[in-house]
Nucleic acid binder design. Sequence first.
DNA 1: TAATGCATGTAATCGGTTACATGATTCA
DNA 2: TGAATCATGTAACCGATTACATGCATTA
Lengths: 189, 189
Amino acid sequence: MDVRTLCLAVLSKGEATGYEIKKAFEEGPFAHFQRASFGSIYPALSRLLAEGLVEAHAMEQDGRPDKKMYRLTAQGQATFHAALTVDPEPDQFRSDLLFLLFFACHLPPARAATLLDAATASYRGHVARVSGIKAEREAVSNATGQPLDPGREFVAGFGITLYQAAADYLDANRDALLADLQGHAEAAE
Amino acid sequence: MDVRTLCLAVLSKGEATGYEIKKAFEEGPFAHFQRASFGSIYPALSRLLAEGLVEAHAMEQDGRPDKKMYRLTAQGQATFHAALTVDPEPDQFRSDLLFLLFFACHLPPARAATLLDAATASYRGHVARVSGIKAEREAVSNATGQPLDPGREFVAGFGITLYQAAADYLDANRDALLADLQGHAEAAE
DNA sequence: TAATGCATGTAATCGGTTACATGATTCA
DNA sequence: TGAATCATGTAACCGATTACATGCATTA
């Protein structure tokens, strides 16, 4: 997904500034499966504005420079919906960690252990974060009676399950790998 | 991981042609967590050759044009090992499918179903393929007594577990999502 | 006082994809 | 005859990252 479409997607959930769009990919609902940087968001927004897919109005703030609030136009809505009809390319879990671990034999065992532990912690962090905001949404929904968004909850659940499985796998196989590496190193002596 | 490093990585497992390197990312051991295209592999190989990190010798073939077999030099080995000491950036399951499903409410339920089923099939295909080659390696190892590569098996196991978990999640939540969507659509009428 | 968060933007650069170009062989 | 596999490469283009540039407010 290009950043252009990603911006339309965030804005389809409500108006936002460039800065807030960035946050949606850092801590917000898209955090676990998409990413975008300032360097791509701001130019995308400018282009979208020039094309009439979004409209912007400046909001004055005391002291701070104005912030620009962006909102989808009808044309932007339509373009976004059209983007949803495109077939997705197959998913792939592109992972630098797996790349390194593939060559575990060339790694000092201590480094392998560090890598493994850091990744486990990171995955568990993901699970905790996404679970937290999902639970919060459920609490709000229960309290107010507002229905949950099925797509959003489905995607959050997917993320939780996947990162949980990843963390569990690392946990379950960590010691065996490290032992293998030790044996491998000794055999090479 | 840039394609340059990826090429060094494949060549560290034995000499190969550009074409074979491509295959390593399509069906080979790297298939489920890295990717590279011809348009990036061939230029990377040229550059690597110019820098002395790989050496090449032409292999004549009857009828067909020569193929170039590439092999790591000592310098290439060293560069590759250095690349293994770099800290990996955090993993992210970048997924177009999840992006679309996040907006499931804007999708016709039939399309959501198609998307879900295609993804499940694709994940299961991954699992079958990686399990197959893993089992084959284990059989060979049992027959010949050659030890397995711990890193390779660990990574293969990770891929199997993850894609299995993904497929299972889709299976387990498919019908509920579709029902929600139906209810949502009716409520909107 | 230093770091962090809020807030927006530009420019250089880079890496990679897509499409194109070529050409033989084998299999359906 | 047409498609797929083997086999290598180039060029245009694009999209995105990184770093840079600015500046105020708040918090430690």
